[in-house]
Design a binder for these strands. Sequence first.
DNA 1: TTAACTGATACTAAATTGGTATCAGAAAAA
DNA 2: TTTTTCTGATACCAATTTAGTATCAGTTAA
Lengths: 149, 149
Amino acid sequence: MKVLNKETDYAVRSLISLGMKPEGWVSAKVISEEQSIPYQFLRRILQELIRNGLVLSKEGAGGGVKLGKEPDEIGVTDVIEIFQGKVQVSECMFRKKICSNRANCVLRHEIMRIERLVNQEFSKVTIGKLIADLKAVESMRSQQTKQPD
Amino acid sequence: MKVLNKETDYAVRSLISLGMKPEGWVSAKVISEEQSIPYQFLRRILQELIRNGLVLSKEGAGGGVKLGKEPDEIGVTDVIEIFQGKVQVSECMFRKKICSNRANCVLRHEIMRIERLVNQEFSKVTIGKLIADLKAVESMRSQQTKQPD
DNA sequence: TTAACTGATACTAAATTGGTATCAGAAAAA
DNA sequence: TTTTTCTGATACCAATTTAGTATCAGTTAA
């Protein structure tokens, strides 16, 4: 059971990458090389993020993309939703009428509880938080290997 | 993002069905009709449950399957693991060496935390619990529609 | 005017999903 | 003892999804 597919994975990594750049437009080529994401695949992913307002784009030479929101305002759930749809138990949930199968409904009830929990937890994880974590890890590492003055 | 696939869904429903039968062997045909699960598909699912010890089987006429454990000892996680594998973030986790991509690792760390939470929650949901929930729902319904004496 | 970009979209191979079909053998019942 | 009811094992299949490629058109800066 894979939680994140490649699209979501690459999207999150790209967003982190963008969130760590101070200013200006970053081209898909740069992100592709930096994160080792296949260029054409990444382009499609970025276009989807653009359509959903998570990133902004500028065409032409010197153009590229940048975050369309504050890093803290982009939750991992948002990204999951774009590429994998809302977390759901099974397609049964789409049926309007109450599921005829009682046992299944009981199961669904339990799982919906867990679903809510997962969504809550995932939305706490924002791009901003991931960047903060990342910086913390990196500063710890530089402490460890610090040169004597 | 579908949490449960058909195999898991049908498996859980079958286990509930078996857990509610008092004694004896139940044939795949009966479960198939009772739960509206395609017969051949169900057979394959049951065989997998048998291989994993969740149900026992008896060949020949009058044979069938029954639970191989107490309902309370079968967690939904067990079933998910059989049909969808352990909950994991991405195949990256299978790589032995620490992932070269720091950003990805940070994300993974967060997600592993959520993973643990999900697994904890799912393992609390046992077939026994689902059956209890089911009976509670059913008794509530019969109260509502109770005939006057 | 050309090089560096995005927008849009069509295509593809491989894997997964959900389901079907078949044949062999065990056990109960006729 | 033969038939019927069952599981064991496995091979097959179509549709969908996943991950990735390719192409062409248009935009902008140098």
